[in-house]
Design a binder for these strands. Structure first.
Lengths: 151, 151
DNA sequence: GCTAATATATGACTATGACATATAACAAGC
DNA sequence: GCTTGTTATATGTCATAGTCATATATTAGC
């Protein structure tokens, strides 16, 4: 699908019955590292863990997940090995490296800093728009909980 | 400078005398829209405003700023006009559009949601790493809360 | 055989950021 | 005149990241 018609797909578009939000950039890698802190896992089960632990809003793009894992391996944050012959298709099992563990700590610090930045933004937003802010309700709900009726 | 040697520049690199943090993705556009809510401004003064109001951590990349403004204009979030002949070089003055104002509101909602996601990440991080965040491996709890199906 | 779930991967495109470089007007100093 | 610094806008190149679509293979259930 091409969306070069004057804006990104989350700009006024719809998906899953509710208006789309601006995407959460750069949050997948730290979440993967955090889940891998509990022990080695393969890509598909990582995807399930991310849903169970509600670390990302909405569904995870599978292609993006696998490519991010490969990139993280190239950066030395994780290691992978093919699982021995067992039930189901072969799995590429990832484990976190010491560098990866150090990176999770750094991510935690960066994300604490980021909440401070966001709070500063929200303060100044409410100063301009009022305490209610006129925040568009379309942007708030979790997409799965409020299914808009068609038309 | 090329940095494709196994990781991004913020991965172990240094700048300004302290270790770099992972970058803050996708935060420039909402900050620009918020500053433009106060009135029309040109790119260079927007850059100064972002520093004064501390909306972004650190310095703003100038090239990135101008390209983001052009992209926002293509999306209909802002309009630009060349300033009349005055002191100094000509300025491209940007003003926010109704669509841009609506987009700031949506950003505010999305950023509130994002703080919730980040807080969930930090909670789970501290469950794995301890409240101090860098504690020894002995203190890592056995998390029975999540079905752990490695491999 | 057919379908679905599991599992990994790539192609094409867009969005964003980091760093470098180019261009130009103007002011202050020599 | 010339150089330097500030203001001001813009482009080139590369890397990271997200979205949507598609390809491939195994296995379990019908």
């Amino acid at each position: 699908m091409h969306h070069g018609f004057g804006g990104p797909p989350w700009h006024g578009g719809k998906r899953g019955g509710s208006f789309m939000q601006p995407p959460v950039w750069g949050f997948l890698q730290p979440c993967l590292l955090l889940v891998l802190t509990d022990g080695p896992k393969h890509g598909y089960s990582l995807m399930e863990q991310l849903s169970q632990r509600q670390l990302l809003g909405g569904e995870v793009d599978v292609g993006n997940l696998y490519r991010t894992l490969r990139r993280m391996e190239a950066e030395g944050l994780v290691l992978s090995n093919w699982s021995g012959p067992g039930p189901g298709p072969n799995k590429r099992v990832y484990q976190i490296t010491p560098q990866g563990t150090e990176m999770v700590r750094r991510w935690a610090g960066a994300l604490e800093q980021r909440t401070r930045l966001i709070n500063r933004f929200l303060e100044q937003f409410h100063r301009s728009f009022g305490p209610e802010g006129g925040i568009s309700l379309d942007a708030i709900p979790n997409s799965d909980e409020y299914e808009d009726n068609p038309i």
